[in-house]
Computed example of a mutant assay.
Amino acid sequence: METSLQKRLKIRMDLMNMNALQTAKKAGLGESFVRDILRGKSKNPGVEKLERLAAALDTNLDWFTSSAEFDKSPAKPKTVEGLDVVGSIQAGNWIDRSVIDEESEREIIPVARDQRFPHAKQYALEVIGDSMDLEYPDGCFVTCVDFWDSGLSLKDGHIIHVERHNGPLVEMTLKAVETIDGVQMLVPRSSNARHKAIPLEGDGGTEILVKGIVTGSYKRAIL
């Protein structure tokens, strides 16, 4: 059974559109502290940390610690602000990691967060090239939920955002998950036969990191 603190923390995070990592960073706390409360593992956290958590979520300590009944609905409707476009994906385009600028100003696309993952990091990526053009054509955007935040396990049919690392170089791409002859593979869905399936475990000395699971797509209107 959820504690009052669990419920209240989830409500504030939903209202602020923040996940556990974002909440922890804003409060100057460890991510595990926030996750332990959400999972019911920390029922009596210290007052000082709760005050910092409350301030980060634009509320106060009394609201967090009150045992009174509360209205679960937001005081005012949420507005759709959109998702940050955190980069682009292009199969075969290997980039030196040292030149990737993660602090540059980001475009925001007008797509609502996926409510199935209220506490997870969500983001968008621009699709470049034809490695997944049967699903997501060149120039569109895909929306993703952070793989680790989602709590999901990979299964056939998932379209995922992956990074392939080879020394200082990284390739950022989309692939479909399929099991072929008992091996979990990352498969292109492309009109171009040059794009090939690769093992999820990596190939040719490359390391594969699963970053996110695709939840949808968006295409700019042509005016």
Score class of each variant (00 low, 15 high):
Met1Asn: 02
Thr3Arg: 02
Ser4Ile: 09
Gln6Glu: 15
Gln6Ser: 11
Leu9Tyr: 06
Ile11Cys: 01
Ile11Gly: 05
Ile11Pro: 00
Arg12Gln: 12
Leu15Pro: 00
Met18Ala: 11
Met18Asn: 00
Met18Gly: 02
Ala20Cys: 09
Ala20Lys: 15
Leu21Ile: 13
Gln22Cys: 02
Gln22Ala: 15
Thr23Tyr: 03
Ala27Trp: 13
Ala27Phe: 08
Glu31Asn: 09
Phe33Glu: 02
Arg35Ser: 14
Asp36Tyr: 08
Asp36Trp: 03
Asp36Gly: 00
Leu38Tyr: 09
Gly40Ala: 12
Lys41Val: 02
Ser42Met: 13
Ser42Gly: 01
Asn44Thr: 10
Gly46Pro: 01
Lys49Tyr: 11
Lys49Asp: 13
Glu51His: 00
Arg52Ala: 14
Arg52Cys: 07
Leu53Thr: 03
Ala54Gln: 05
Ala54Glu: 15
Ala54Pro: 04
Leu57Trp: 09
Thr59His: 08
Thr59Ile: 03
Asn60Glu: 09
Leu61Trp: 09
Leu61Cys: 06
Trp63Met: 07
Phe64Lys: 09
Phe64Asn: 11
Phe64Trp: 07
Thr65Glu: 14
Ser66Arg: 05
Ser66Gln: 04
Asp71Gly: 01
Lys72Ala: 05
Pro74Glu: 08
Lys76Tyr: 12
Lys78Gln: 13
Thr79His: 07
Thr79Arg: 15
Val80Met: 12
Glu81Arg: 15
Leu83His: 08
Leu83Arg: 01
Val85Asp: 06
Val85Arg: 00
Ser88Lys: 10
Ile89Gln: 08
Gly92Ile: 05
Trp94Leu: 13
Ser98Asp: 11
Ile100Ser: 07
Asp101Tyr: 06
Asp101Lys: 14
Asp101Gly: 00
Glu102Thr: 14
Glu103His: 10
Ser104Phe: 10
Glu105Trp: 02
Glu105Thr: 12
Arg106Pro: 00
Arg106Leu: 12
Ile108Trp: 11
Ile108His: 10
Ile109Gln: 02
Val111Arg: 04
Ala112Pro: 00
Asp114Thr: 13
Gln115Leu: 13
Pro118Asp: 08
Lys121Ala: 12
Gln122Gly: 11
Leu125Gly: 01
Leu125Asn: 07
Glu126Cys: 03
Val127Asp: 01
Val127Trp: 00
Ile128Lys: 15
Ile128Glu: 06
Gly129Asp: 04
Asp133Gln: 09
Asp133Arg: 13
Tyr136Asp: 00
Pro137Asp: 04
Cys140Leu: 04
Val142Lys: 10
Thr143Pro: 05
Thr143Trp: 07
Cys144Lys: 06
Asp146Tyr: 02
Trp148Asn: 12
Ser150Gln: 08
Ser150Val: 04
Gly151Ile: 13
Leu152Val: 10
Leu152Cys: 13
Lys155Cys: 12
Gly157Cys: 06
His158Ala: 05
Ile160Lys: 03
Glu171Val: 12
Met172Val: 01
Thr173Cys: 13
Ala176Thr: 04
Glu178Ala: 10
Glu178Met: 07
Asp181Tyr: 06
Gly182His: 04
Gln184Gly: 01
Leu186Ile: 08
Leu186Val: 05
Val187Ile: 06
Ser190Val: 11
Asn192Leu: 10
Arg194Leu: 06
Arg194Phe: 07
His195Ala: 07
Ile198Arg: 13
Pro199His: 04
Gly204Trp: 02
Gly205Lys: 00
Gly205Val: 03
Glu207Lys: 13
Glu207Ser: 10
Leu209Arg: 15
Val210Trp: 04
Gly212Leu: 07
Ser217Met: 14
Tyr218Val: 10
Arg220Lys: 15
Arg220Phe: 14
Leu223Ile: 11
